[in-house]
Design a protein around this nucleic acid. Structure first.
Lengths: 339, 339
DNA sequence: TTGAAAGCGCTAACAG
DNA sequence: CTGTTAGCGCTTTCAA
């Protein structure tokens, strides 16, 4: 009927709760005989210990929190699956929270984490987040935090991400080698570290090939898919000295794929003839697009796994300096028809 | 330094913990003046109440659990976002668990839920799950459960899903009207209720149009993407009396898209000339595929929202008969170039 | 080898 | 209006 407690189990066996507790954890103090009896009765009554009661005593929740902007995104959903895979191995539970790119929401979630709700946190910060004070506050309360993908450089803790600068450079270089003369960089935030680093790689590549680096060619794409499409359309229609229209696009995140394709479509620009497109993306459908999309593909699942592994080291390890544990995993360029 | 408790807050104010507790919940028994002082000090010390301690007293966790096969899937990730949106409004937390299509994993998760870890559960069952005994066990312990999408018909509790039979019929009818003469139905499980119902709709459509219903034309696609592709390739190569090769495909879930396209590609079958394809899918990229994919699109976000809303009614409501609360939401046919 | 008792942080009677 | 107390379900000394 009602939930069965260790006390009920104990009285069903004419034992004390303490003894039962020890028996259940296979303590050396308990005789094999009673252990057996206890286990049997526990199974019979379908006893499942209340995790919160034990947690209260031990000051642990056996739970981690994930905070990210969205789930409906191939990169993030794969990263979550990576995290889950190690949480599951470790016997931890995972609470999930969406910031929806809002700083205030993110800050509220982290503030709540100061309560003992979680033993550690994995976070990929919102676009709006310019500063990591809310994260430092949490770390100060001894809750370990690991960033994955979208990091805050002003917070001294582990970061697991890809080589953003390098791969921004690679993507741009690829377009240059495909003879693009004017390449746009599509960003989603002016503050986000990954967006910045990818952009710096893009600029570096332009410089290496003696191409002009124009601030106008970095386009901030905000809003919903429709708004992004409009912004991209506008950017594609700009003309520079020498009748130079954009003929290459580096899109810094996955959610830009649809707006880019639709924008080109509606302007009758054909990919790759009129404009070549490369995008950071983990979408399994990239090869099936019309035309197949050249991508920078991040090891999303591995990023999740690695971040979670570091977090558990910090949670379980005694002397593990999480601030010195950042890891960079390489992304790969998958060349397809769009370039 | 260490986490601050209500007791510390109280002693900092020369009050008793009881008084502080009441003040924090804005109880009528407490004077406005002390309430103010308490609130102020709570803010100053950055006090966040331990949720598990309160939960232990009140026998509630303010947490729900989601159990599903995968996250890296447009339908499921959108459904989660729908669930999250209402959990967030209600001030509930959400634990997420992946069954990876395994019955044993799913059963273990549900068994743990008997502990008081969650106040309610949203589940979309694994392919392997043929029977709902593990779910009934949980319900018997007074944990309300709501199914979304992948239901178990042998468990009497709310289900939120789409009109699977109807939409299986619609998809097939659409192919028939496009002059397909031999249509394959790609399933992912012989036991899964949604797969069954969609198939029954498919068969019904065939019958309505006096077309033969052949068991060989229902293909069970198991394994990873590569294995699925092989199975599909094999199915597409079968020839029947009168030299009838398959010229239409109804794919019952999203993860079949890539294998179907790759199989056709590798066999030099062109879509839609040689074979027309329709798939259940929520992928935003469907319109951009080569060719654009005709889909049955489920209201994934709304399914999540609705399921969560029902669950909270069951959790919070006194007299709400969850067993009688099933809701069916309509899917839509999006006709595109693949048919 | 087992039992008794205290206490994790909080809430809710019940007193004062 | 504020304080005291008991106890949620469990673990963990310490004593028997």
């Amino acid at each position: 009927m009602s939930t069965i407690t260790i006390r009920m189990l104990a009285s069903a066996l004419n034992l004390s709760p303490g003894t039962v507790s020890k028996a259940l954890k296979d303590s050396y103090e308990i005789s094999a005989e009673t252990k057996l009896k206890v286990l049997e009765m526990a199974r019979k009554l379908d006893y499942v210990p209340n995790p919160y009661a034990g947690g209260l005593r031990k000051h642990k929740s056996k739970t981690i929190g994930i905070v990210l902007p969205a789930i409906n995104d191939s990169f993030f959903s794969l990263a979550i699956e990576g995290i889950e895979s190690v949480a599951q191995e470790k016997g931890y539970h995972v609470l999930i929270y969406l910031s929806h790119e809002h700083y205030l929401r993110e800050a509220a979630i982290l503030k709540d984490f100061g309560s003992g709700r979680v033993d550690g946190v994995l976070i990929s910060v919102a676009c709006e987040t310019k500063e990591g004070g809310h994260i430092r506050d949490l770390i100060r309360k001894n809750v370990p935090v690991v960033f994955f993908d979208r990091v805050c450089d002003d917070v001294k803790t582990a970061q697991v991400s890809t080589d953003d600068f390098q791969v921004g450079y690679t993507a741009t270089k690829h377009l240059i080698e495909r003879n693009c003369a004017r390449i746009l960089y599509l960003s989603i935030s002016e503050s986000l570290s990954i967006s910045q680093k990818r952009m710096q790689g893009y600029q570096q590549a332009l410089r290496c090939y003696d191409m002009p680096v124009s601030p106008d060619d970095t386009i901030l794409c905000m809003g919903d898919a429709g708004q992004m499409e409009n912004i991209i359309r506008h950017a594609l229609s700009t003309v520079k000295e020498g009748d130079k229209r954009p003929d290459g696009i580096v899109a810094s995140v996955e959610k830009l794929v649809t707006p880019v394709y639709l924008a080109c479509d509606s302007m009758n620009l054909s990919i790759p003839e009129d404009v070549k497109v490369i995008c950071f993306s983990n979408m399994p459908l990239a090869p099936l697009l019309c035309p197949a999309l050249t991508t920078i593909t991040q090891p999303a699942f591995e990023i999740g796994r690695t971040a979670a592994t570091l977090l558990f080291k910090a949670i379980e390890g005694k002397d593990f300096d999480i601030a010195k544990a950042s890891i960079t995993l390489p992304s790969v360029l998958m060349v397809r028809a769009s370039t």
